Simulated scan of single mutants.
Amino acid sequence: MAARSQPDAAVEAHPAARVLVTVEGLPPGRFTALVAGEITEGSLARLRRSLTAALDSSSGGLDLDLSDVGFCDITGLHLLLELRARATATGRSLSVTALSPALLRLLRATGCAGRLIGTDAAAAGSLLVTAELRRALAATGTPWSAARWAPGDCLRIRIHGDAATVTWPVARGSAGAGAEQVLYEAVASALHRAGLHSVRHRAAQARSVRSALFGPRGLTRTRRA
């Protein structure tokens, strides 16, 4: 059963729904997307492009963490059903692994809960990763508004074995070096708690990569590679 959670109060409100984080490389060939904001007709086109691309990039299917979706109208529900049909037609699956109370009420009222809410144990890994990321980012109390990112861009995480590479969107404006470091460490710590041993940070347009290496007690050192 998908986890139900309240939207994180410390994460800034996003009026229009968008994909904030994607995670690639989870077994068995699944892609995960963390969505936040209000899913309405106005936000539908961009969200459809992002989620369709995520689904098509996977071999096993797409898991959606919708915990921070504060509102979803009927057009948003149609999008979820459309993505599910596309996944099924290509031998993959779509699973909502976590959702907000508002979205749960909509799915139950329309009889779609059983069709969309994930029960597959294969989705457990993606839920663990996104839950840790949401918790860590909310706990920092640091502004990380996606409004600073280019439209359609998001935080991209690729998992390979017990390591992860985090590609940060190019920000418009600056939150300051200190705030940036807090976010880097929050994301790295979240991925460590989810079972990953090393995390490499890179900017979308940068050649250098910053590696955060962990020991049994957490973050031990950070370096540029």
Rank of each mutant, 00 (worst) to 15 (best):
G215V: 10
A124V: 08
G76W: 00
G215D: 15
A85N: 08
A146M: 11
T90S: 15
G141S: 13
A186E: 05
R84C: 00
T88R: 13
R86I: 00
L83I: 00
V129L: 05
A138N: 10
V21M: 01
V187K: 03
G111S: 07
G25A: 05
A16L: 15
A98F: 04
A89G: 14
V11F: 04
G125N: 04
L104V: 04
L51N: 06
A136T: 07
R86D: 06
L103K: 03
G195F: 11
A139M: 07
G215C: 09
L127R: 11
A188I: 08
H201W: 10
T167Q: 13
S58H: 10
A194R: 02
E82T: 05
E185F: 12
E185C: 12
Q205N: 11
G60C: 12
G215A: 14
D162S: 15
S58V: 10
H201V: 03
L133W: 01
T22I: 02
W168I: 07
L107T: 00
G195H: 11
H78N: 10
I157K: 02
L55I: 08
V199C: 10
S189M: 15
L128S: 06
R223G: 11
V21F: 06
A177S: 13
F214V: 05
D120P: 03
D65L: 02
A175Y: 03
L81K: 00
D68G: 04
L104N: 13
Q6N: 07
G141D: 10
R18Q: 14
D56V: 04
A225C: 08
G29D: 12
L83C: 00
A138H: 09
R158S: 08
A186V: 05
L104P: 00
A87E: 03
R156N: 05
L94V: 01
A121Y: 01
T90F: 00
G195K: 10
A225W: 07
A203Q: 09
G118K: 01
Q205F: 10
L107I: 01
T220C: 10
A3E: 14
G42H: 10
A146C: 12
A113S: 11
R46K: 06
A98K: 03
G215R: 09
S58G: 11
P28C: 06
D68I: 02
S211H: 07
W144L: 14
E185L: 15
S211A: 12
R92F: 07
S95V: 01
H78L: 05
L20Y: 05
G70Q: 03
S208N: 08
G70E: 09
A147W: 03
G178A: 15
M1F: 09
D162W: 03
S145H: 13
T142S: 11
V170N: 08
V11T: 05
A109E: 06
R108L: 11
G118A: 12
H78W: 02
S174C: 13
L44H: 14
D56W: 06
R217W: 08
A89D: 15
D73Q: 06
G111N: 07
L51P: 06
G195E: 11
L155D: 04
V23E: 04
P15T: 09
R49D: 15
S95Y: 02
R49L: 14
L44Q: 11
T220M: 13
F31S: 06
L34W: 13
R18D: 12
R105W: 01
T88D: 15
E41N: 04
A150D: 12
L104D: 15
P151E: 14
